[in-house]
Structure formats: C-alpha cells, structure tokens
C-alpha cells in the first residue's frame, strides 16, 4: 500500500490541474489561502485584545470565555454554520462554504493566541515593568517596548498552536465541501481510491510540519536573544561589569 501511495504522489498529472481534476498545487494554494486569511483575522483580533487585557488586567473574563469555546466540537460547529449560511448563496460560487469555514477557523485560532498573549504579558517580571515605568516610559511605551518583546516567546507558541489547528481544520473543511488538501482525503474516501486518500494525508501532515518549522525559524529571529537565552555567559558578563563600573563612576561624580 505504501508503494502505491508513493506512486500516486510521484505522478506529475496529480500535481497539475487537468480537465477533470484539480491538482495538488492548486489545492495547496487554496489551503494556504483559507488558513492565512483566518490566521490574519484572528491575529488582528486576539493580539491587541490580549495585550490590552494583560496590560490593564481588565476584561480578563474574556480569556476564560474564549478558552471555554475549545470544548465545542469543531466539525459540529462547521456543519451547523454551513447549513445556516450556505443556502443563502446561489450559483457557481463557493462563498457560502468559505464564510462558515473562515468563521470556524477564526474562532479556533483566537483562544490560543489570546490566552498566550495575556499570559505572556502577565508573566513579565514585575521588576522589569517597574524599571520601565521608573525610566519615565508611558503606559503604551511600557506595553510596546517592554511587555510585548518580553512576551514574544509565549505569543509565538500560541500562534504556532493556532496555525496547526487552523491547518488541521481547514482540511476538514473539504468535507462540507470546499477546496484544499483535504479534498484528496475525502475524494479518495468517496471513490475508494485509498492511495489518493493516504497521499492526501501525507500532504496535510507535510504542510503542518513545514508551517511549524517555518514559524520556529521566524521565532528564532524575532525574539530578542536576551529573552530566549540564546546568548553565551561571556557576552552577558562583559557588558554587566562595564555597567557596574559606569554606575560606580556616576555615584563618585555625584
């Protein structure tokens, strides 16, 4: 069975669009488009909200409410919204399926980003926050220049788990039915074409793994080395001792 899956994946006619079938490349683009739009909307909602809740401590019940959403079965909500929304669209358009899918994907992506951003800001060392205020930073400066960079590792881990869930659920969207790599899984199942079904599984798994690796690489460059701890002991010690002498010198002149 494994060899027939490899044969299916290696067949160039499965990658290009043909008159009868949509190819892997096109479905991959559709999958990335659905996931990308949902992640962008979720990020635009959850990141500012999480920063605000973490910074002010107000509205923290929203985080608990968003987390309670996770108990909902994704497939059920997807089907429910589809039968509610899809009949309102007619003709050769898939808008009636895209809208419910995007709603579910956004609802799915918000809780991990929101709760991790909130937790990240909450977990910033109070001494660091005090120092920033003591330097004369305003509230928004403290938030954007101190609390946000310090909470980046947690924000990234939330965004990565949101990405994985969105890619996984965008696959299930092929069930309602919509394009994307899940098409091969559900078409293979319907046609009893198991190499196609398993090949689709391989593609989805590969997409999830590469998206996570890519985000891990972005995280490595975006997060300050002082926070992630990827900095050698020597480099830390040197500026520290210099700082110490500077403060002593200042004290002496005063």
């Amino acid at each position: 069975m494994i060899s027939s899956v490899i044969t299916w994946l290696n067949d160039p006619s499965h990658w290009r669009d043909t008159r009868l079938n949509t190819g892997i490349i096109t479905q991959l683009e559709a999958h990335l488009r659905f996931s990308g739009i949902a992640l962008l909307i979720a990020l635009l909602i959850a990141l500012p909200l999480g920063l605000f809740i973490g910074h002010t401590g107000r509205l923290s019940w929203l985080v608990a409410a968003a987390n309670a959403l996770r108990a909902l079965p994704t497939v059920g909500v997807l089907v429910l919204l589809t039968v509610m929304i899809a009949p309102n669209f007619h003709g050769r358009t898939d808008t009636g399926y895209v809208i419910p899918t995007e709603i579910v994907l956004v609802l799915l992506a918000i809780p991990p980003i929101l709760s991790n951003t909130y937790a990240g800001v909450q977990n910033v060392d109070p001494a660091v926050r005090d120092a920033a205020f003591g330097m004369g930073m305003t509230g928004s400066q403290v938030l954007l220049r101190v609390e946000f960079p310090c909470s980046l590792p947690l924000i990234f881990s939330g965004f990565r788990s949101a990405t994985l869930q969105v890619i996984a659920t965008a696959t299930i969207a092929s069930y309602i039915p919509l394009g994307g790599l899940g098409r091969f899984i559900y078409d293979g199942l319907a046609q009893q074409d198991f190499p196609q079904m398993i090949g689709g599984g391989v593609l989805v798994a590969a997409l999830a793994l590469s998206a996570d690796l890519l985000l891990a690489a972005v995280q490595r460059y975006a997060v300050s080395r002082g926070i992630s701890g990827r900095i050698s002991k020597k480099q830390v010690a040197a500026p520290d001792s210099r700082l110490a002498t500077v403060t002593q010198a200042e004290v002496a002149t005063v």
């Binding site: 994985l164 299930i172 599984g201 989805v204 999830a208």
Partner: peptide, 14 residues
C-alpha cells in the same frame, strides 16, 4: 502532536 488528526487517521493503516 503537529500532525493534523484527519491526516493521522488515514496514515495509521499503511
């Protein structure tokens, strides 16, 4: 844990 559930389901049998 990165592998989506539906993909893992169809990958288990082979």
């Amino acid at each position: 844990y990165t592998i989506p559930s539906i993909a893992l389901f169809v990958l288990i049998p082979p």
